[in-house]
Design a binder for these strands. Structure first.
Lengths: 231, 231
DNA sequence: TCCCTCATCTATACAGTGTCAAGTTGTTCC
DNA sequence: GGAACAACTTGACACTGTATAGATGAGGGA
């Protein structure tokens, strides 16, 4: 007999508390942000005592790690879809995944902040490691294919095995500019530069300039031109 | 009569609690990171009750805002010094300040994380607004001078008044790549790419590639070459 | 000299947090 | 049907940030 608490809740046992906690966590993150995130509040929304989640997640870090895993996979899914769309329309795949990275983070800032270290996570968790490796693998293979002038990355060995290739500096720079722009935008660091309402303009500007930047800095011959400057 | 609690502590009153709290905050940040930061722990180290700091900082956010102000000014000082050094040795000023940004963050990761939004700050605080505007002003003027082919930025109006200039996209990208690289490096997101001990190599690599990237993407003619790509 | 004022600090209390130990409930399997 | 076990509750603990009221000492005017 499901009472009004929601489907699956039929008395003492919840039914699917793990999923309910994750849903509640996402809702709390969306409403109150990372700073206002609380394990007890999530348990309250799932209609369960404060100690109940411990059986599924161990502790607070465990729940956040599950959210971070979702975040990584959300990034990967969005990047994959964007790359496929770009291939279909003849656009640049690398620019498309960078823009997808930014848009995904903008759609769920709280989740994105959980992924990128704003609170303690369990970095040994195998599921999260898999999701993280998958997301980074997309960045690696797409950057490499872009530099090689290929239409799309060929199927090959796992990215983590080939990550120490000599061109990983370009991969890091492509990721850095995307991640940096995303982080600064989400954290409102650009607010005193542009009005609140011009977020769309900023996004379009990013895409446009990013194209040029990627084209100029990550071209196949870029790694060979080694100038003698000093810092 | 100063007892063993420290200079200036002569009984009921502390003497310079404000500075002592800031020092304690920096120490706690260095030891335990942002996540382990606690107002009560700082008060404990300053040899003072938990409620004492309220009179100087209002609340926890007030103390963190003071630390963030220090962080902004630390960034500004390091960038100014690096730019002057670059001018003296004939190096690229923009690359020098980007590298200084990275090195300053690496030297005090906890302080850097406080500056960039890992915990609640008082964004209306005038001192912090001044420090933030100063740091960003350096980035703006140096990027603009770099793009104009000048040896150094000329004295002119306040950067905040001219920030909406048409070339602010390039300023944002230069900041983004530096900030993104810094954030990812500090948060250990590159750890599975490179070994723990090769931080120096990564820093050198960053400087070298950054030079090329800045040269290619932020050259004076870069803004004019507007290709018809679509995201 | 005394006393008054006021910023500074202490003591105490309160609601809220994460986590642990022990007990309760329901399911599943023999 | 009973046993074993996972899932959940209850109650407690140490800890947090913050509010309030009271204690302390420094400085200024008479």
């Amino acid at each position: 007999m499901a009472d009004k608490r929601g489907a699956g809740r039929d008395g003492y046992h919840h039914g699917d508390l793990r999923q309910a906690m994750i849903d509640a966590a996402e809702a709390v993150l969306a409403e109150r942000g990372v700073g206002g995130f609380t394990l007890r509040e999530c348990a309250r929304r799932a209609g369960v005592s404060a100690a109940a989640p411990a059986h599924h997640f161990g502790n607070l870090a465990g729940l956040l790690t599950a959210v971070a895993t979702l975040g990584f996979d959300g990034l990967s899914d969005a990047m994959d879809a964007a790359a496929a769309r770009a291939s279909a329309t003849g656009g640049c795949r690398l620019a498309a995944i960078c823009r997808a990275y930014l848009e995904t983070a903008l759609a769920r800032p709280g989740r994105f902040r959980v992924v990128f270290g704003r609170r303690e996570l369990d970095k040994e968790d195998p599921e999260m490691q898999r999701a993280g490796a998958r997301a980074f693998g997309i960045l690696v293979s797409e950057t490499r294919a872009h530099r090689a002038g290929l239409a799309a990355p060929p199927p090959g060995p796992l990215p983590s095995e080939t990550a120490k290739a000599p061109d990983f500096a370009e991969i890091l720079l492509a990721w850095s500019v995307t991640h940096g722009f995303t982080t600064l935008l989400i954290d409102g660091q650009f607010d005193f530069l542009v009005g609140e309402d011009s977020g769309e303009d900023l996004l379009a500007l990013f895409s446009q300039r990013l194209m040029h930047l990627l084209g100029a800095a990550l071209a196949p011959d870029a790694a060979l031109a080694n100038r003698g400057h000093d810092g």
